[in-house]
Design a protein around this nucleic acid. Structure first.
Lengths: 127, 127
DNA sequence: GTGTTTGCAAACAATTTGCAGAATT
DNA sequence: AATTCTGCAAATTGTTTGCAAACAC
């Protein structure tokens, strides 16, 4: 189970680092193909899963049925637009206290919380 | 676009009302089949979506890739067990204030928030 | 009678997996 | 040389859809 270096994985990580819009596997695939024209979608999925499992990136699930990926692993809130589907970060201090409050009311072990907000983004509101 | 009565839909609603464990479409399907042996999974999906769109039930998305459904439409928190996959309600006052705080920091329109907690449920912790 | 709902099967979308060959150590 | 990683294609999973017949009003 040792990890070997892979240029494809590097490229995926690098691509993700340049983006603030939480791309899906498909978007990552299209982006990385500029550098690796023969890379397969399967490889992209495999590496995104691997990186997420290692904690180097975060798998963002905002209820739209598609996984998004975020290079920023610090706990923070996300917003999803119900109209255009875009995902944005929210500049709002992350309430760890809520997780703590949940722990006090629950019999099992709570590891963490996931919170997202939904509505219409600024661009879609203007239209 | 007028709604007509359907015994299948009634049965689905009734089944959901008896459950506190946020069943998936498949579980609903198996449960309702005791009353309607010929009901199809498609009908179950269509009605669950219809009921959710009307606001009579809630589609619960807790990041496990499967939609769960909840008869309790009041805003409340959910917990998902990473081990057995069960979904539970949390007895913790729902912080609407967080949505309000988010509105003040975001350019678009925020309609609401979704929050869930994850970890290991009491049963899985004991093992 | 008109329009909605159903059962069935096929279609669909996102993601995972098996395999033989290529790349990394 | 040993093992991990890749590209490709096929498989899997959850969900949606088209259609003709059945049902509700």
């Amino acid at each position: 189970m040792n990890l070997k270096h892979s240029r494809q994985r590097d490229s995926i990580k690098k691509f993700l680092a340049t983006r603030k819009d939480h791309p899906t596997a498909d978007i990552v695939y299209m982006g990385v193909r500029r550098t690796f024209p023969n890379i397969s979608l399967g490889t992209v999925y495999r590496n995104l899963t691997l990186l997420a499992d290692m904690g180097e990136i975060v798998r963002v699930r905002v209820g739209d049925g598609v996984d998004h990926f975020d290079y920023d692993t610090s706990p923070h809130y996300h917003f999803v637009c119900s109209e255009c589907g875009c995902v944005r970060d929210l500049e709002l201090p992350f309430a760890q206290s809520l997780t703590q409050a949940a722990r006090e009311r629950f019999a099992g072990e709570i590891e963490g919380q996931v919170t997202w907000f939904y509505g219409r983004c600024a661009e879609c509101t203007e239209k």
